[in-house]
Nucleic acid binder design. Sequence first.
DNA 1: GACCAAGTGTCAAACTGTTGACATGACGAG
DNA 2: CTCGTCATGTCAACAGTTTGACACTTGGTC
Lengths: 141, 141
Amino acid sequence: MPAEELGVLIKSAQAVLNQRMDEALRPLGLTVSQYACLQNLLDEPGITGSELARRTFVSRQSANVLLQGLERRGLIERSDDPGPRRERAIALTAEAKQLVATARDEVAAVVTRMTAPLDGARLRTLLSELAACRDALLQND
Amino acid sequence: MPAEELGVLIKSAQAVLNQRMDEALRPLGLTVSQYACLQNLLDEPGITGSELARRTFVSRQSANVLLQGLERRGLIERSDDPGPRRERAIALTAEAKQLVATARDEVAAVVTRMTAPLDGARLRTLLSELAACRDALLQND
DNA sequence: GACCAAGTGTCAAACTGTTGACATGACGAG
DNA sequence: CTCGTCATGTCAACAGTTTGACACTTGGTC
């Protein structure tokens, strides 16, 4: 059974992808974590810090220090009056929107290169099969 | 183009897989990194520390502190007289071989659960397509 | 209304991993 | 032979992340 390979395969793919994304984003002064943060905030404005942590697969404490850095750099702004559950709405500045736009292009180039050996149909099957595997582990028994 | 999803899909699959493996290995007193280390040493005995680092996708310094912990715990032994390139051969103790055997079963159960929704043919296509994507990024330009 | 569970934000300590640097030994080109 | 290159092992400093803890707010339950 070749199923054992899938684990290391996922790990190796994630490792090299992360490395290439880091190389692509470094000239922009962004880490991969920071880019993921900004990208999620662009897709879903006004998102909360904890929700952001869930989407980037880190603890909410770690997301918080990330947000502090982005705030100090003038890329995001957090409202001082908290909302319903003590949450502070997060907004991207105009500078950040422009930065994440170019960053998105850089990342898209990496992903395009990664998916180059696959035609449209194969890419779709890869996406659905890999998602099925992930979801099989997501059920909390 | 749905290609953009592949990145986060790989990341999420790796995250949940790592979490499930951690849950499975914690009762044995092993972290995922430690298991990966022992597993590689079982597959390829006498491997060098730097080679081990490459296979587990970490720096050789990080692999070294991992090996120090395993050595202190009596799971591996490193020869004191270095070989051709100052390398120290690493060997698993009998206790480690038994531990990694049961750990391998635990991990296999997780992977089996992950690949449950796929039949043999689909699993093979997933493996080859994902490997193709990874290899597309491995070419250093 | 009182109370308790759940969600959020934040701080401090601990851990894991990386980067940078250095010493050592092997190998090949000149 | 000598020197430059490369690979290994190891140390120290550093950054990033997690774990544990606490305060605050909301919402449902009794």
